[in-house]
Amino acid sequence: MTTRTMELLVGVFVAAAIAALVFLALQVANNSDATRGETYTLVAKFDNIGGLKVRSPVKVGGVVVGRVSSIQLTGEYYEPIVEMQISTQYDAFPETSTASILTSGLLGEQYVGLEPGFIDDFVMMLEDGDEVPNTNSAIVLENLIGQFLFSQGEEG
């Protein structure tokens, strides 16, 4: 076998590997803008975060706009505080917005649903590091069942 043929085949080999990498990077991996590029931080306090995890998505109307970057307890009452990295593409949330912890589907993963509020002359926009004032905590199934059983007991 001549050197030239061998070089050609090695070239094909490397090109095939690069093609595989491009396929994995573009077709298989997550490419949404919300997880890359410039982000800014919003925080929100909840009573209960349920099964929310770091890297859970933050969605507005079902569209991913950012991710949860840290979850900690804060203050003297140990409230969970959730820090979110939001894409700077979406940087105009008013301070009347609401953050809720929702579940995708019956058994799906939990995510933060951000709902933009109304805007008028007195409403400021949330900026980097601000806290989302209105929050709805996660619904814990055990508590719901407990309440249901309790109300059943009262009736009977």
Binding site: F13, V14, A16, A17, A19, A20, L21, F23, L24, V28
Partner: peptide, 14 residues
């Protein structure tokens, strides 16, 4: 070559 082969393996497996 082995990491390149592993990339090809994953891509064609998917």
């Amino acid at each position: 070559s082995m990491p390149l082969l592993a990339l090809m393996f994953s891509a064609i497996g998917i």
